[in-house]
């Protein structure tokens, strides 16, 4: 018996959510007295592996098939299924993401495993295997029992700290054959903001709403975000109007974020927007309407004009550093 962790890379760099998944698996492995195997697919920068060991891996495997640099869903699922059997795993752990979800679903069938997504804590093993997951877009939790022998857990961002007290270990190269039929869906290209902090991965998010009146006013949002090494987000009307790209849209029908700090600027705080941010640790709201519903969900707030407050805030933060 062992645990397998499927890690993802972004531009060759192992994602921090994947490191969280490794540490989560290490926590679980301790409860069960088993080992943590990690598998990475495609080109991964060699200097990234040390962190995987430190995060709690006992063995690291690398399948360096270039065709897997892209997230071809079926091919990733096929590779992981093979490794799962090879290492004799009984639990697969991965970070919830747009690729992770898609791959985990196919694996649940391939492996005949019980899959639980949006996991927010280590399982309770006192009576079977019961794990807590977030449901109703963060409005509730469900204690969920898995009765299948094989299990898959897709772990939510920011629910488990990355460990750094593990050991640096050697990476073993794997050689597996992924048959061509797994590549029938062809990725023909991509558009991606290079070098930006990924919104679902971010520790700080600065988000702007329709109250900012137009895309020309995003300069001050960008400056504030830069001063905090934050990712940028927006409300749905802002992306619907084309002021900002769709992948920045946060909420019920957009990206769900779970940063340590979420700063909402000129966003009213409609329930559908809150659904995407309620997993944030701290929420700061800047709005000129004292009755804006967002204040009810906030930890800290300033009632004021964004055009006045935001530049001052950026200055104060820069002054701190």
């Amino acid at each position: 018996m062992s645990i397998l962790v499927y890690i993802e890379q972004d531009q060759g760099k192992i994602k921090s959510s994947s490191l969280e998944a490794v540490s989560y698996a290490a926590g679980l492995a301790q409860l069960q007295g088993v080992k943590v195997n990690v598998i990475g697919l495609g080109s991964i920068a060699s200097d990234g592996w040390d962190q995987v060991g430190l995060a709690g891996a006992n063995a690291i495997f690398h399948l360096e098939d270039k065709r897997l640099d892209q997230g071809v869903i079926q091919a990733h699922a096929d590779a992981i299924a093979q490794v799962f059997d090879k290492v004799g795993a009984s639990i697969l752990v991965l970070a919830k993401s747009s690729l992770g979800d898609a791959v985990a679903a196919r694996l649940a069938i391939k492996l005949d495993a019980g899959l639980v997504s949006n996991v927010v804590g280590l399982p309770d093993l006192s009576n079977g295997f019961v794990v807590r997951r977030s449901i109703f877009t963060g409005k509730a939790f469900a204690e969920t029992a898995i009765s299948a022998d094989k299990k898959i857990l897709a772990v939510k961002k920011n629910i488990y700290p990355i460990k750094t007290d593990g050991e640096v270990i050697k990476v073993e190269s794997l050689d597996l054959t992924i048959s061509d039929e797994n590549f029938v869906a062809k990725i023909t290209g991509a558009e991606k903001a290079e070098g930006e902090i990924l919104l679902p991965e971010a520790d700080v998010v600065v988000s702007g709403g329709r109250g900012l009146k137009g895309p020309e006013n995003w300069g001050m949002i960008e400056e504030l975000a830069d001063s905090l090494h934050a990712a940028k987000g927006c409300s749905k009307p802002v992306s619907d109007l084309g002021w900002r790209p769709h992948h920045e849209h946060v909420g019920q029908t957009g990206v769900k974020v779970a940063p340590t700090l979420y700063i909402a600027i000129a966003i009213s705080g409609a329930i559908q927007h809150l659904a995407g941010v309620n997993a944030s640790k701290y929420i700061v709201v800047i709005n000129n309407d004292p009755d804006a519903p967002f204040f009810k969900a906030a930890d800290y707030g300033i009632v004021g004009d964004a055009f006045d407050v935001v530049p001052k805030l950026t200055q104060a933060i820069k002054a701190l550093k």
Binding site: S98, P200, H246
Partner: peptide, 9 residues
Amino acid sequence: EIEGGKEFI
């Protein structure tokens, strides 16, 4: 949709 953008398939 992928994190930070989109890919074409």
